[in-house]
Write a protein that binds this DNA or RNA. Structure first.
Lengths: 216, 216
DNA sequence: CAAATTGTTGACAGTATTGTAAATAGGTTT
DNA sequence: AAACCTATTTACAATACTGTCAACAATTTG
């Protein structure tokens, strides 16, 4: 009966995306139903189609928004790490990893991507690699760019894995038991990442690689 | 008209699982429709319900089968690495990582798990950790079990990430360009894993951790 | 104040999918 | 050969979801 007051298109879109994010967090990526989003946003479902064109349009818009926000948090954390004192380096690096998860945005970003959303992944990832390389250079002098690329890839893949089935794997490996909770794992990983940038480790690695190539 | 010859229940189940695996590989985990599986297997879809009870029953059975097979391949690869000569260690370790992907089974296992299948993940993972720890001990003497656990977790998470969105991330990071294809990344990771077991790295890591704890 | 614009909604069409029920026939046992 | 078991199928029920359409009302513009 009583119609809702008209929101501006921007307000409506934001409200719908907020609702969609909540729904995705609670039911997973495949369970994103337009009707459920509409109910959460307190409107009728054709209104969503009016604003986003289709279900796929909604998914792409949500992917774009959460990807942008997550990238913002991560890049800011790396920038902060760039200015951290040496004794704070592990904490700063741990904070960088934390930022990939905060507020369910990393989870939603991965899930949206999993649903086939396109988004501007490439430019976001390249910003992160660029800053990460600056971070490694600040810590260890001149380092190999390819290794930064690979490290970022390893961490990114692990983050995706954590989002997708981290809870199950953690449970299967008994990580709930004593000290091995998620935060501790991230700190452990942060330490490894910092040490992996060390020049002596790099040479050690290339030595092994050379030995192997000679064998082929 | 012409009815199919009756298969034994075991044969029928295997044929259906083969079909389901193909379907999942081609359309992804969320797109698993029992009608499509039935078409692929050349039978009517109620027959699948007859043999597996429901769509969920089919998913669980498929998860169990691919999980078992993938675990078999991985554990065998680790066992082989245990008996490898020192100069073959990187190749053997790379082979272990390769085994997690071979034949789409790793991909399907992750995807099925993603669809909510239960399966015997815990016992499989623990077998892998146990063998991995033997491998690390063989290479580096007595090492910390928790670190083996964390390394297995890191690699497993990265494998899951690779399965879920490895192609996109690889593309976003420009890994297609020169030498950074998937196989090279695995070899690079294998080298890191072998070197990470080194005692000097472990002490370096714990030193950083102690320094950070003192700071808190 | 009138008219246009557009955000919003209820009703509906169309399709896809899972699962059920009864019937049929291949294979096995007595 | 008869009877039985069950793998298999056709037809159907029931539901759920996306997207369309025409109408309505809130807001803005002339």
């Amino acid at each position: 009966m009583a119609r809702k007051t008209h929101k501006s298109p921007e307000q409506a879109r934001e409200a719908i995306l907020d609702a969609a994010e909540k729904i995705v967090v609670s039911v997973g990526p495949a369970g994103l139903r337009i009707s459920a989003v509409a109910k959460q946003a307190g409107m009728a479902h054709p209104n969503i189609i009016h604003h986003f064109g289709s279900r796929e349009g909604l998914i792409n818009a949500l992917a774009e928004r959460v990807g942008q926000r997550a990238t913002e948090r991560i890049t800011q954390a790396i920038s902060e790490a760039l200015e951290a004192k040496p004794e704070d380096c592990v904490a700063a690096m741990t904070h960088v990893l934390d930022m990939a998860y905060t507020g369910d945005e990393g989870k939603v970003a991965v899930w949206m991507h999993l649903s086939g959303a396109e988004s501007s992944l490439k430019s976001n990832m390249q910003r992160i690699v660029e800053l990460s390389h600056q971070l490694r250079k600040a810590f260890h002098g001149d380092v190999i760019y390819d290794n930064t690329n690979r490290l970022v890839m390893l961490v990114t893949l692990a983050l995706v894995g954590e989002v997708v089935s981290g809870a199950s794997i953690k449970g299967a490996l008994g990580f709930d038991a004593k000290q091995g909770n998620r935060a501790h794992f991230r700190q452990w990983l942060a330490e490894i990442l910092l040490n992996l940038s060390d020049a002596e480790l790099t040479t050690s690695l290339t030595e092994v690689a050379l030995k192997m190539q000679a064998q082929n």
